[in-house]
Design a protein around this nucleic acid. Structure first.
Length: 938
RNA sequence: GGGCGCGUAGCUCAGCGGGAGAGCACUACGUUGACAUCGUAGGGGUCACUGGUUCAAUCCCAGUCGCGCCCACCA
């Protein structure tokens, strides 16, 4: 017997365990069923479940459960991501809380700590996924740092290097001066900041007394200026091009150049060029062969001492100037900024200061202000890899849902910049590159070392041994202090040792480098496994738009390059989950809704149904907890409907088919269910989760509970045994079908109820088959009758309420006229019961009550004095005659031979369609008119 | 500066060329043997604005205003 109320917590735990034990989640490559694969976007291994996860994994689970029921061999590939920077920050902060400094701890010890933290917290997210009801193939769970996946990463790196698509380059990069690492363009977040625009006068060296004014928001970068640019067509400065400026404070003479980059409209029209600390200036510098003077160290502190490039103008400085600039050495760039401004002002070089809001680049994870900095890094030639990815989406091998995201995808890929893939971190895939001294050089050149790229250390050693024609040893650390290294070389030269030292690149790869391989690395690549052959490419990727660039684009690039085929056919992009008021959820706003709390409060099914119902394409979800409560009530409703069925002995009958039913209500509900099933199926096929949820909600509550159950009551309590049995069986059958249709969205409650309504289809619901019901055309009469009955009952209820007739009063319903469709009145008892009326025909005089006039399949209710139908009727008449005029006009056109001869066929076709449209409209009007016509005389 | 999306009931949102809808909230009535986490009925909208296309526009097109997001840039 079912409990009086549904208790989600107990049911969820019990049911999930049963599913997992049953093996229902497992993919079965040998099954012979058509495969269906979804790669789970791997959550951060040390993370915990948030609303975004709840949404994305619910949708994936809906698809996966649906496809399993449709007989596919489903692989939902689970796993977690090592999330390099995010995890490194977490562990570093944990250590800091215990007064342990990451750097003094050392690399090996630190990595050990991260693994410990992973062991400790790594199960959290997967446990929480289980609470959400997610059903991936847990036996195949992967982690991006598993040995197999690490090997795939090295293989990809080495191959791309050999193809010239991965290379080392000196470029300006985004540098985080606190974490001491480079980050990619995508990890930079511009934040609006209030600042100042300082206008500085630079004296022209050749023309004493003449100045050129430049403006800057970062005045400290002037130490690295190596030019001033003006627009070639700017008449104000035409005579200055080719002259030089004597850089204040620094003494360096730098050229005034003409470059289109300088915008005459902006500021003074002259712009200082700092190639080592600004991305645009870097390009300008390259075009004009300007030096790049680096003024910052890795802490973003000013470097004066020993900075040869910077000191090139120092011979122009007097002692006072020299000592002042020397005092800047080691200052943080923001501190130096203030000092430089003060100094410029004092010396009269500061023309003016304006308040100015500007976008300042920050590291999206650490929040630190990013400095453009010149270093050697590893890059991936994304431009080459992007081309096939663009083509694949253009020709539809992969398509996005909703479609418009393809524009975003194209836009980014078409303007893609080299992808900086090295990171100065410890947690991640260490780059498989070893360095050594260049042959023929006696000393060490750290800037231009010999490079050995190999998948393993043994391979790297053997490459190096061939190169040096000597034994090689691997240093534990890169030679930061060059002396021991030099000594080793000297000793080798003296013949005392016979080993060339090499050392491994200490950097790790961008986390997204390994994520990009996820669709094939998890399936065993580079081995040619059966799984790889079967489940690549996957059917659909479900993810948020925020990682189209980070992840989707890169999977496309890598998948096409290494597998020769797209990684997935469809990319389903869903929006963000925001709070009730549309604000992004964040800790600082304090508006985070915890999905687990909602599950505790309302049950997992309610949360899942809510998310599915709200995920309208192309729109963010604003999640109001009241909505979850509403769908919790829906679960309760379903539960109570099932209880009703059970209390009335509705059990599945062997061999039952709704086609055998004799009662109109039973045939009607079977047809309505079939229509619902067809609609839900096509919605899910189109990834319209909101429609599927809406159709089910409407059917369960609005059709099955509100009407069918009410209709069934007198039958189930009646005397006729055959009708009784038929209705019991139908009720159980409908519930059985409904549970299947609801299962992908509400797996727990449906599984719990399934045991009572499974019929011959015993076993777990998760393994049951999807209802394949074609909408029945043959029950049109039954459907028409019941629609009519429902309409009559609703209308009577409306009149009663309007007239304030108490529910307890049985009102006489006077049958005024019945023409055409007496068969509709077979349901007269249902009408009497549900509308609380007593049906009498007009031979019994002269009762006052509600009059029911039946005319064809239309009806009308009339009550003395309350319905003024005449006016409505004439309004509709006018509209009908207007439609008639239109139709006549178009049809005349169509019949006109000359018109046909002149107009092209599509014009004719369009006109015909138009006529058809108006005709339909007219028919509707006519029906309404007839309804009124039948009852015009109350 | 480039691009995308959105303005429909008090709130959250569907709909998208011919009837303006759902859930929540609100009002009235109601405990009839599944369900008060409920039932029945009801109020509430110039579908942002202005033009255009059309026999017909909330829906298509153009523009305006407002909101949000992404990319680039701001010397």
């Amino acid at each position: 017997m079912l409990d009086k109320t549904f208790e989600p917590a107990a049911v969820e735990q019990r049911r999930y365990a049963l599913w997992e034990e049953s093996g229902a989640f497992a993919a079965d490559p040998a099954s012979g069923k058509p495969p269906y694969a979804i790669m789970m976007p791997p959550p951060n291994v040390t993370g915990s479940l948030h609303m975004g996860h709840a949404l994305t994994f619910t949708l994936q689970d809906v698809l996966v459960r649906y496809q399993r029921m449709r007989g596919r061999d489903v692989l939902w590939q689970p796993g977690t991501d090592h999330a390099g920077i995010a995890t490194e920050i977490v562990v570093t902060n944990q250590l800091a809380e215990r007064q342990i400094d990451k750097r003094s701890l050392g690399r090996d010890k630190f990595i050990e700590r991260v693994w410990e933290w992973k062991a400790e917290s790594g199960g959290t997210i997967t446990r929480q996924l289980r609470r959400l009801g997610a059903s991936p193939d847990w036996a195949r769970e992967r982690f991006t740092m598993d040995p197999g996946l690490a090997a795939a990463v090295r293989r990809v790196f080495v191959q791309l290097y050999r193809e010239g698509l991965v290379y080392r380059d000196q470029r300006l990069v985004n540098w985080d001066p606190e974490m001491h690492t480079v980050i990619s363009d995508l990890e930079v977040e511009s934040r609006e900041t209030k600042g100042f625009l300082w206008h500085i006068r630079y004296p022209v060296a050749e023309l004493p007394g003449r100045f050129i004014t430049v403006a800057t928001t970062r005045p400290e970068t002037m130490l690295g200026d190596t030019g001033v640019a003006v627009h070639p067509g700017d008449p104000r400065y035409a005579d200055l091009v080719g002259k030089r400026v004597r850089l204040p404070l620094v003494g360096r003479l730098i050229p005034i150049i003409a470059d289109e980059y300088a915008d005459p409209e902006t500021g003074s029209g002259a712009v200082k060029i700092t190639p080592a600390h600004d991305f645009n200036d870097f390009e300008v510098g390259r075009r004009h062969h300007l030096d790049a003077v680096n003024i910052l160290d890795r802490d973003a502190h000013i470097v004066i001492q020993g900075n040869r490039e910077l000191q090139t103008g120092f011979h122009n400085l007097n002692r006072d100037e020299l000592s002042w600039i020397g005092s800047l050495d080691g200052a943080d760039r923001l501190v130096a900024r203030g000092q430089i401004i003060k100094r410029l002002e004092k010396l009269g070089f500061l023309e003016k200061v304006e308040e100015h809001t500007l976008m300042v680049p920050h590291h999206d994870r650490s929040g630190v202000i990013i400095e453009p900095w010149l270093t050697d890094q590893w890059f991936c030639d994304a431009r080459v890899l992007a081309a096939p990815a663009i083509t694949a989406v253009e020709d539809g091998r992969t398509s996005f849902v909703p479609r418009h995201w393809e524009n975003t995808f194209f836009e980014w890929l078409r303007h893609i910049e080299p992808w900086c893939i090295s990171r100065q971190l410890w947690w991640g895939h260490q780059i498989p590159v070893w360095y050594g001294r260049q042959a023929g050089r006696t000393g060490l050149d750290l800037d231009q070392p010999q490079i050995f790229v190999a998948e393993t250390e043994e391979e790297a050693i053997s490459q190096a041994e061939i190169y040096y024609q000597s034994a090689v040893r691997v240093l534990a650390e890169p030679p930061i202090d060059t002396e021991p290294f030099q000594e080793a070389i000297d000793r080798a030269a003296r013949g005392e040792i016979y080993r060339e030292p090499i050392w491994r690149d200490p950097d790790v790869l961008d986390t997204w480098f390994s994520s990009a391989l996820w669709p094939f690395s998890t399936l065993g690549w580079p081995e040619e496994t059966p799984e790889l052959a079967r489940y690549y490419p996957g059917n659909v990727l479900v993810t948020g738009f925020d990682i189209i660039f980070f992840w989707v684009a890169r999977m496309m690039m890598m998948g096409l390059h290494f597998m020769g085929e797209v990684p997935f056919r469809t990319v389903y992009i869903h929006a963000l989950v925001r709070d009730e008021r549309g604000q992004k959820m964040s800790k600082s706003r304090g508006n985070i809704i915890d999905p687990l709390e909602l599950i505790d409060r309302y049950g997992c099914d309610a949360l899942r149904f809510t998310l599915a119902a709200l995920v309208a394409p192309g729109r963010d979800i604003k999640l109001a907890p009241s909505r979850v409560e509403g769908y919790r009530n829906f679960a309760t409703k379903l539960w109570n409907a099932a209880r009703y069925a059970q209390l009335n002995g509705c059990v599945p009958a062997a061999g039952f088919s709704p086609g055998q039913c004799r009662l109109t209500v039973n045939r009607w509900i079977a047809t309505a269910l079939a229509d619902c099933a067809a609609a839900v199926t096509s919605s899910l096929d189109a990834h319209r989760f909101d429609e599927a949820a809406g159709q089910l909600y409407q059917f369960v509550w609005g059709t099955f509970c509100d009407w069918y159950i009410e209709f069934s009551k007198p039958i189930l309590q009646g005397e006729d045994a055959a009708e009784h049995h038929e209705t019991q069986a139908t009720t159980a059958w409908v519930l059985g079908q409904l549970l299947r249709l609801l299962h992908p969205i509400m797996p727990f409650i449906t599984e719990e109820l399934w045991q009572y309504f499974a019929g011959e289809d015993a076993g777990l619901l998760i393994s049951a088959s999807w209802p394949e019901l074609s909408p029945r055309k043959e029950n049109t009469l039954q459907v028409a009758i019941m629609d009519w009955v429902i309409g009559v009952i609703s209308a009577i209820r409306g009149v009663r309420a309007e007239m304030n007739v108490p529910p307890s009063v049985r009102v006489p319903l006077i049958l005024k006229e019945v023409s055409g469709r007496a068969d509709f009145l077979e349901q007269r008892e249902q009408i009497e019961r549900l509308a609380r009326v007593e049906l009498r025909d007009d031979t019994i005089p002269p009762a006052r009550g509600i009059q029911l006039v039946v005319h064809g399949d239309a009806f009308v209710l009339a009550l003395d004095g309350i319905v003024d139908l005449a006016r409505e009727k004439s309004r509709i008449s006018k509209e009908i005659s207007r439609a008639d005029r239109d139709i006549a006009k178009f049809e005349a056109n169509l019949l006109n031979k000359q018109f046909r001869a002149k107009a092209r066929s599509e014009v004719v076709q369009e006109l015909e369609q138009r006529v058809e449209g108006i005709q339909r409209h007219r028919d509707r009007l006519q029906a309404a008119h007839d309804r009124i016509g039948a009852g015009s005389g109350p």
